[in-house]
Design a binder for these strands. Structure first.
Lengths: 233, 233
DNA sequence: GACATCTCTCGCACACTGTGCGAGAGCATT
DNA sequence: AATGCTCTCGCACAGTGTGCGAGAGATGTC
């Protein structure tokens, strides 16, 4: 087993911050800007270095490698996720708001789709968000490991729903076709499935964004209903 | 807008198969082998060419670019997903079997996690699977767009749940630490959240695989319960 | 038989990527 | 003045996907 060792930034002591000059914070901030503007493919160490007026490899003094940098940036995304207090609004509304919040944050930082569920979420912000999520479901009445299961169910739904949304937006942006042309080609591919075509046609009369929001809401209500039912027994 | 044009293999006419020699099928098959053995990072055009006793760029005769190749491989994964007939076993069992099936197929081809929900699933096998999924929920009693919403809810849950499972397996494999050491480091990172620590400790006494299967079942039952409730109203 | 056309292979080259290494600059402490 | 520590960065290496254009081999067509 000579495979490269797995490590997380959060398992190591950070380099003690010295004088101003460059800092880990500044680097992460610049990386976030680059990611928001150009997406995951637009972030390279050389570009990031240039943006900071530094040589590409200077950054390696503050960050062990690119993966660590991404872990750091990832945690900043978690910082934006607001998880309301269940004591105030009731667990159902809290869970719902949390789910919607995750979705909007993900859509705001599409590159996070490449990291969510793929990179260990052990940063301080991620942990704090998890803790607040768990609180919601404890307030709902779950106990023991069921709390984790409930959190996992809702977050899994949000990931799985939002991820394709992001992917769709990305391909739509990269395409020279407009929405109608796109739909036409999809229809051609699905020509053998009349039932799907019908459904496609029904969706064509609505704004895709509204359509997706509706789908999200439909699923979310179902998931929460299901969890509620479990509490009742 | 000079961005590279988005296209899908499924939008283009395939090159009409000529004599044996090399063929698109053979290439895709070899790519699948490589992906299963070495994962997404292990697939490069040069390696694939070598495996087939061909030059790296020879493959470009059969496939426009690597993305197209991945779309083709991706569809083969969908070919493995069995979706039972709702008429025979009832919609709930059918949906449940479908969800478990998707999960096992994904775990069997971990690299598919990088494609699922990210790449348009418009290949024949993907479409056929979708069609059969829709049938399940129509049999359940959903109508119009609700059919799509229900399918989306269940598949989103499966993606979102299985994706982190795969990621965890991957990092565990790359690591020289064993499960206990890993848990120790996680515990250190989460030291500020006593509630999480307690939960971590509770999970420590069980086989992680069983734990994850339990979590999956818990969520799936909830989602299906939620959908069932919607039918009742 | 000779020539043209079409199918397919592949080496070269280009522009990129992450990052290990080692030389050095600037500053602080002794 | 000398030592050592913190930090920068150019070079180089081993990769990546893929555009291009030269050619091989088969298959018509006159």
């Amino acid at each position: 087993m000579t495979g490269k060792q797995f490590t997380s930034v959060w398992f190591r002591e950070p380099r003690k911050a010295a004088a101003p000059g460059r800092s880990r914070e500044e680097i992460v901030r610049a990386a976030l800007e680059l990611l928001d503007q150009e997406g995951m493919a637009g972030l390279s160490m050389r570009k990031l270095g240039a943006k900071l007026g530094a040589g590409a490899t200077s950054l390696y003094w503050y960050v062990a490698n690119k993966d660590e940098l991404l872990e750091l940036a990832y945690d900043q995304v978690w910082a934006e996720m607001t998880v309301p207090d269940a004591e105030e609004v009731g667990w159902r509304d809290a869970a719902s708001a949390m789910a919607y919040g995750m979705r909007t944050v993900m859509l705001r930082h599409p590159w996070s789709a490449d990291l969510l569920g793929r990179v260990p979420a052990l940063g301080p912000h991620a942990l704090s968000a998890s803790d607040r999520m768990r609180r919601i479901f404890r307030a709902a009445g779950f106990h023991g490991l069921d709390v984790d299961y409930a959190v996992a169910a809702v977050t899994a739904f949000v990931y799985g729903m939002t991820l394709p949304e992001i992917a769709w937006d990305a391909t739509a942006n990269d395409s020279d076709y407009d929405a109608d042309e796109m739909r036409g080609m999809v229809a051609k591919a699905a020509a053998d499935f009349p039932d799907m075509l019908e459904s496609l046609a029904m969706g064509a009369y609505q704004d895709p964004r509204v359509l997706r929001a509706t789908a999200f809401d439909f699923g979310l209500v179902s998931v929460l209903d299901g969890l509620e039912r479990r509490l009742a027994t």
